[in-house]
Simulated assay, not measured.
Amino acid sequence: MDVESVLSRPPGPGPKAPGTGTPARPGAGRRIRAAVLGVLPGSGAVAAALLALAAVGAVLGEPVLLPSLAASAAVLHHTPGLPAAQPRTLVLAHLLGAASGYAVLAVVPGSPWGAAVAAGLTFAATSLARAAHSPACATAVVVVLQDPVPVRFVPLLLGATVVLVLGGYTASRLRRAAPPYPVRWW
């Protein structure tokens, strides 16, 4: 079954949304098939990017798939035209998040209080750098609560963000109807 055949099928029978004339949502089976085949905009690309991060982590024996990167993948593939999804923003914001986390750890031991401060610092730093990307605040929280070794964590984080950007670039080239990504590289 190819992507075009799944997309070209009319939605299953069902009531129209009240007062809109909009067709009802496709049935659960069709939505599951579409998600598995990657037909829903970005769904297969998000899964592929996150699977790539998981595979890299398995090969290296290091956790590379962070919750904040999963959120970044969703932002990138769901809203590829927004400033928050652009490569400069995504990469720089996560690096600023890591730096904020390590800065807090240099002053206080890891704690939920320190994690909250690091997330706030990340928000401020990314705003000042014109690289606002909310998931990077979670990267700061991970750093404070997990205290990963910087010499290993930062290169892995940088590599992971580059994988996400390349995944977004590839997905935008493979989907004919998708807008081009990135809008700007830096």
Rank of each mutant, 00 (worst) to 15 (best):
P41V: 10
G159R: 01
P15N: 00
L174F: 09
A118L: 05
Y169M: 04
L166K: 05
P83Q: 03
P109N: 08
S72F: 13
S127Q: 14
T22K: 01
T161G: 03
L92E: 15
L7P: 07
R33H: 04
L60A: 11
A85W: 15
H133V: 01
R25C: 06
L158G: 00
A171G: 04
T126G: 00
Y102P: 11
P11E: 13
A131P: 08
V143H: 02
L69S: 01
V91D: 13
V141W: 11
L37D: 01
V141D: 06
G57F: 12
A45P: 13
V75G: 02
L90Q: 11
P63E: 15
A24Q: 10
S8F: 09
V163D: 00
G101V: 09
T126V: 11
G159T: 02
V46A: 08
G38Y: 04
G19I: 06
A84K: 04
G27Q: 14
A58M: 12
E4Y: 12
V75Q: 04
V154S: 00
Y169H: 02
V3F: 05
A34M: 08
T126A: 01
A177K: 11
P182C: 05
P80G: 03
A52E: 10
A45G: 06
S72C: 07
S43T: 15
V163R: 08
A28L: 15
P150T: 00
L69V: 03
H77F: 13
A132R: 09
A131C: 12
H94E: 12
T161D: 15
D2I: 01
G57Q: 09
V151F: 12
V154I: 15
P180K: 06
A124D: 13
L37W: 06
G168D: 12
A70K: 07
V59L: 07
P80K: 06
V104A: 01
C137R: 07
G120R: 04
P23E: 14
E4K: 06
V163C: 05
R88M: 05
W186T: 00
P26A: 07
V56T: 10
L95I: 12
A93H: 08
P67D: 10
V117A: 10
G61D: 15
V108M: 10
L145N: 03
P63V: 06
A71H: 12
F123H: 09
A48Q: 14
R33Q: 05
G14V: 09
P148Y: 14
P148T: 02
T22L: 14
L90Y: 13
V144G: 01
T79N: 09
S72K: 02
A178F: 14
H78S: 08
A132H: 08
A71V: 13
L121Q: 02
A34W: 03
T89C: 02
V151P: 05
W186D: 07
G110N: 06
A129H: 09
R152V: 07
R88F: 12
V142W: 15
A45S: 13
P13W: 12
A131M: 09
T139L: 04
Y169D: 03
